[in-house]
Design a binder for these strands. Structure first.
Length: 432
RNA sequence: GGAGAGGUGGCCGAGUGGUUGAAGGCGCCGGUCUUGAAAACCGGAGACCCGCAAGGGUCCGCAGGUUCAAAUCCUGUCCUCUCCGCCA
């Protein structure tokens, strides 16, 4: 969430952010006016603190008179009234605070000044293109044809077992998926300085509140129930990784903190009916290697650039053509201040498709989650900046390999970088 | 799942309802001593929030309750540990 003080002091900027993101100002303010609520909160708080101070002093006096065997009944009676007044004011305060918190959670992050302003994806800007799309002397197929034909992907049986938006991987398919995971983890841990983590895949509502998925995006999540307990399946490892240091104060020397995790991700994809229904593009369950960094505010933007480079390195080594896009204000995620997408070329579909998204969330998540660091000994703690990025989405990388490395006979050549992870195998062919 | 124990400052650990924001120890910081360090001795310091400051407020897992007053009493809840059962 945004800093209350920032909101109070930068009313125009906050309203502008809502507009730039294509959100309705009226609709958000209908949930509560943060400026009016804050004024009310201050008024109540001041009064409560004053009474509490009186109560404390009177307590000491009563104790003193008790020892000295003096009468304190009048003071006690008076304090009873004060205690009641405090209770009443606190109830009011709690209500105002709750309403204020509620609105604050619904305000999105303020975009970085370098982000292009625009209403939707059409205002996104291409930053660079890397690699040349290969020329085919035959018509390249889409992975949803290639995979089943090779016997390594089975959507029909997945539908039988679990319904739409699931896939079964067989043999070389399963092996390729596993090789990609291993390859990416090795790259990020050995050469890019990330610490490997296996986090929980089920998290509490509180954790999701900290990263921003709740309360606004509950529909996208799978919720589980076991007895009295509600837990959510993670939509991305960003959630547990960012939450690792919730309620902690880190040392400046510990920054940047860099984590990489391979996890399955679960998304309900509510509201995407009819979109990307074929193939692996949009599944309820998919694999991702996720990068997360906690940094000092000053380092945020440069760390974002280097994170994008980390994700790009995977594509470069797999020799997949891609482009880098900077998302405009209207297309960015709710809690992001700046986002780069990597889009890989998919010849079977003739388009560039998102395969990674790297963002800095500045202090939006760290404030919600209370993740701080101490700039120097004795100094006041400050909120860290949180960054996250896919490094990469494994399923979509799988797609890219199938489509980019397909041969006229329907086989798929395995990129050299992956061969060590597949027993030196060079090619996936039907029936092997 | 059953039975029990417990959650206090960076860590360990004491705490009779009222100068206890909290003894003591470890660790930490400063000093004495030493060529330097260690040891020893002396002194200092809880955290967070608001505030330029003075100062104020909050915090003994969390949330309620009793009371003039709660770390201390009551209720609920979460978590941890031990034993038993089950299980990858």
């Amino acid at each position: 969430m945004l800093d209350l003080r920032f909101v109070v002091e930068n009313r125009e900027r906050v309203l502008e952010t809502l507009r730039q993101r294509g959100l309705s100002v009226e609709q958000v303010l209908a949930q509560g006016d943060p400026w009016a609520l804050d004024a009310e909160r201050r008024r109540l708080l001041q009064r409560v603190e004053e009474l509490r101070h009186r109560q404390r002093l009177a307590g000491e006096e009563i104790a003193r008179r008790g020892k000295a065997r003096e009468d304190a009944s009048g003071l006690k009676a008076e304090m009873k009234g004060v205690a009641e007044e405090i209770k009443e004011l606190e109830a009011l305060l709690q209500d105002v605070q709750a309403r204020l918190d509620h609105v604050l959670l619904l305000l999105p992050n303020v975009p970085d000044p370098s982000v292009p302003v625009g209403a939707d994806a059409s205002a996104n800007q291409e930053v660079r293109r890397v690699g040349e799309p290969r020329r085919f002397d035959f018509t390249p197929k889409a992975h949803w044809d290639l995979g089943p034909e090779l016997g390594i992907l089975d959507f029909d049986r997945a539908a039988k077992i679990s319904g739409a938006r699931f896939a079964v991987y067989f043999e070389a398919g399963a092996r390729l998926e596993r090789a990609l995971i291993q390859f990416m983890l090795d790259l990020h841990t050995r050469q890019r300085g990330y610490r490997e983590v296996i986090p929980p895949y089920l998290v509490t509502a509180e954790t999701l509140l900290g990263t921003g998925q709740l309360p606004k995006f509950e529909a996208e999540l799978f919720k589980t129930r076991a007895g009295e307990k509600d837990l959510y399946l993670i939509p991305t490892a960003e959630v547990p990784l960012t939450a690792l240091h919730r309620d902690e104060i880190l040392e400046a020397a510990d920054l940047p903190r860099k984590y990489v995790a391979f996890t399955p991700c679960f998304r309900s994809e509510a509201g995407s009916y009819g979109q990307d229904v074929r193939g692996l593009i949009r599944q309820h369950q998919f694999h991702k290697v996720e990068l997360v960094k906690l940094t000092a505010p000053e380092a945020s933007l440069s760390e974002l650039e280097s994170m994008v480079a980390d994700a790009e390195e995977v594509l470069k080594r797999l020799q997949l053509p891609y482009r880098v896009i900077v998302l405009c204000t209207g297309d960015m995620g709710f809690w992001s201040a700046k986002t780069y997408d990597l889009e890989v070329w998919l010849p079977g579909q003739g388009l560039y498709r998102e395969i990674s998204s790297c963002s800095t969330c500045t202090d939006y998540q760290s404030r919600r989650s209370s993740i701080r660091y101490r700039p120097a000994p004795k100094e006041k703690p400050r909120f860290v900046h949180t960054l996250n990025g896919s490094g990469l989405a494994v399923g979509r990388t799988f797609i890219a390999i199938l489509e980019n490395y397909q041969q006229a006979d329907g086989s798929v050549v395995i990129p050299e970088a992956l061969r060590p992870y597949m027993d030196g195998r060079e090619r996936i062919t039907r029936g092997q």
